[in-house]
Amino acid sequence: MHELSVMAYMLERVEGHAERLGATKVIAINLVVGERSSFVDDSLLFYFEMLTPGTRAEGALLNLRRTLMRCHCPPCDTDFHPTGADFRCPRCDTVGQVTDDGTELLIESLEVVT
């Protein structure tokens, strides 16, 4: 259910852009959703389908580009993807430092018909 209000806000914004661009129809919405958001793809798509009928985005494709979180291990000087059990380096067991990756929650672009 966490995805419902996010999709509602996104759609309101997309409608605003469509209006501004003089678009009659939105055919694709390209989003970037970072792993750290904890939002689930299926739920985003589910609420999108639920909310779009009657809007300019009805029938539009919702493309979700996922970004992953990363951890930096100073001794190994490498980045790794945390396992989900802890933030320790798989090579040397040092506790890594989580980087800024995977935090995105963006509307990247729209494909519209004008």
């Binding site: 996104m10 914004r13 678009a23 929650l105 963006l106 509307i107 672009s109 729209l110």
Partner: peptide, 9 residues
């Protein structure tokens, strides 16, 4: 048209 937006959801 493809229109770049790049803004927070």
């Amino acid at each position: 048209k493809i229109v770049n937006i790049v803004e927070s959801l």
